[in-house]
Amino acid sequence: MLLHTLNRSPATSRVYQQALAAMGPEDRLLLVEDAVQGALPKLMRYFTGLEGRLFALREDLVARGLEGQCDPSVQIVDVDGFVLLTEEAEKTVSWY
């Protein structure tokens, strides 16, 4: 199982498509920086098929005023959780 991180908003950059294409069936995706916009219910459609494997970084949501607006299916983790995700994954691939 690999961890993929994405830092670009799916509303602006198509790099999320490449991240999704390179993900294995067990791999996880963590949204960080501007990509946390993807946790909003209206933007969740970009990440269909990732149920239970989609995470967003809490402090990037909080900084943007978006913490209370997330889709309930996204798992919100703090930076400690980010490190934990990298511990659990064999390796991490960063998409930007």
């Binding site: 690999l2 294409a21 390179a22 294995g24 791999d27 064999e90 390796k91």
Partner: peptide, 8 residues
């Protein structure tokens, strides 16, 4: 499908 196998 084959791209998804490469990172691992």
């Amino acid at each position: 499908a084959s791209i998804a196998l490469e990172p691992a």
